[in-house]
Design a protein around this nucleic acid. Structure first.
Lengths: 342, 342
DNA sequence: CCACAGACAGACAACGTTGTCCCCAGTACA
DNA sequence: TGTACTGGGGACAACGTTGTCTGTCTGTGG
């Protein structure tokens, strides 16, 4: 009979009704067993469990969530590009926190497209995720105001939101850069080439501001050796390095606004057999293998993801808690190796 | 009146019932408008849409999925470690395909724990994901047989499943390694040190087999310079390199089974100012910056993720299609740079 | 022997949406 | 004027589960 039933609708997943019929108990008793309610007589519970495994029953969490109004045990993570190690590290750290709360992460990349970002937020809200972690792009997140007001926990990472209030976890871009440029100044450098990419990016603006602070402290005009590049292709950074080196007053040190720019600079310097001092924002896994010494601003990317996820769960427990704004500290570290000739 | 209603339960999300009441139409008409059914009189549709935006209505996809029995527009991706660029690249590529189908990815890391892998599969099935992409760990995936029989699309990547039949997308580890070792042999190397880590890993077994094939073709005993290391810490690989170099018949070339082993080897060789020929499986972003020439086996990681996701959606359309087993080709590429002394 | 409490199973409604069906108004045709 | 048809809105049930409530059965104390 069981075979017959299984044959009749092999593709249909068994429901609690099927289990109840097979075990000869009521639907509600199956529900109680499935949820581990202790007040079920043990012989009935055993029969239910036997029927469950015989039928291969799996609870339908979609239905359970709908009825109970409980959380979906899902949080949404919207980042710029999952293929970028910075963001995948954040995702991994957030997922590790989520795991402690039996929660899964839906991770989606906006690809620097504000429209897509907004669509993703809407989609995730319609899926009734329990919270959102967002690395924003574009400069208007006001569409989130209504969600936040309804109690949706939202945490912004790497850049703050515009147009709405939410928890944030940011890197201390400004202090990190200021400390790094101070170090170059302390070493005696006075002509420091600063290379950034698009200043539409909050983090890049902060880094530039940090560099400017340090330079102005030293009485140096901060725009003196500044190049802003417009592409993320490394050789564009190389071109900027080349142009500055070929100028009448070449810098004696370079500050690269991120690791991509650094790579372009390293290649150009290697090509020119030039040993100009190098410094950059962003530490990365292979920085120790760089073929020349570089001082970089490091920070714990995992902390960023961890704090963001913890904030989501904290706000889930206490929805009306005060807004939190965390800053992840930075440090200076010397990377690159002195290699012998090949 | 609207204010009053909004004030009464500000935290409750408006439902279609609320919208229907506000627009003075039936619940079903709201549903029709929400789903873009064209047979709704335009004045009613306008009233509904106005009510929707006034109330800030968002469809509850949990309920919609339950009722319609439709797909949840979610696929599950179980990988070993999202922080590893190999897997995050796969995740990004799979997400890009999923985006074309308006589907989101739930990405979870098993962390090389077979128990966790199984729990994750179960969890994702209870969430009624539309399909699964799994990078397996452990050697028993028989628990998936029932799911696959029920029609759950499941695609295994990087390693095949054990104990059940499913689509696979694998890298051509064996051919890649064989070609690489053939190249070393063609260069005249006869003493080739082979370093792998744990052979519990399918990919590593395949790579070793590929190396053995090439060596045996050349009449060389394949186990002659073989070291298997037991940790993923780079310096263990360095130790293996050192031990082989210090032996009475040191290799003139090394094949490293993955990029982590390569890094350990590079460091050890740099420390010793030793220029033994280097070759390895795995290309990676910073390989061009390695301080000495290395020939590596490359492959397109994005293809792996893309094909896996495409297989899921293909099987979703035609559940009973034949099992697919894709192999991602490999190629040899010279990396590393000839750097000048620092 | 009765009253009562406690333990526990089951009937029923509900979550928010969509599928099915029916009904009504309007139109065409005989 | 009656009939058949069509376009379109609404009533109702249903998806699979959980919350609430009721009812039964057992055991205990007076």
């Amino acid at each position: 009979m069981t075979d017959q039933a299984a044959g009749r609708d092999r593709d249909r997943r068994p429901t609690m009704v099927d289990v109840a019929r097979a075990a000869g108990v009521s639907l509600k008793t199956v529900s109680r067993v499935a949820n581990g309610v202790p007040t079920v007589r043990s012989d009935l519970a055993d029969r239910v469990r036997a029927a469950m495994s015989e039928l291969g029953f799996q609870r339908n969490n979609v239905a359970a969530n709908l009825r109970s109004g409980r959380n979906t045990a899902t949080i949404g993570l919207i980042i710029l590009d999952l293929a970028n190690p910075f963001y995948s590290t954040i995702a991994a750290a957030a997922a590790a926190v989520a795991e402690r709360f039996d929660t899964q992460l839906i991770t989606a990349s906006s690809g620097w497209d504000p429209v897509r970002e907004r669509e993703l937020v809407l989609d995730l809200c319609e899926r009734r995720v329990d919270g959102l972690i967002i690395a924003p792009t574009g400069d208007d997140q006001s569409y989130l105001g209504a969600e936040i007001a309804r109690g949706m926990p939202a945490v912004f990472i790497d850049s703050p939101p515009s147009g709405c209030l939410a928890d944030t976890v940011l890197i201390d871009n400004r202090t990190g850069t200021r400390d790094l440029v101070r170090r170059l100044l302390a070493e005696g450098h006075r002509d420091i080439g600063v290379i950034t990419d698009s200043l539409n990016d909050f983090t890049m603006r902060e880094r530039l501001a940090g560099a400017a602070e340090a330079l102005e402290e030293a009485g140096i005009e901060s725009g003196r050796h500044f190049r802003r590049i417009y592409s993320d292709r490394p050789h564009t950074a190389g071109d900027a390095v080349g142009a500055m080196l070929d100028s009448s007053e070449p810098p004696t040190a370079f500050f690269c606004g991120n690791n991509r720019i650094l790579l372009g600079a390293v290649e150009e310097l290697a090509r020119r057999h030039d040993r100009t001092r190098l410094a950059a924002f962003d530490d990365f896994e292979f920085a120790p293998l760089l073929p020349r010494p570089v001082t970089v601003v490091g920070y714990d990317t995992r902390t960023l993801g961890r704090l963001a996820a913890e904030l989501v769960f904290q706000r889930l427990r206490r929805p009306r808690s005060a807004q939190a704004n965390y800053v992840v500290p930075t440090y200076l570290v010397d990377r690159g190796m002195a290699v012998d000739p090949v």
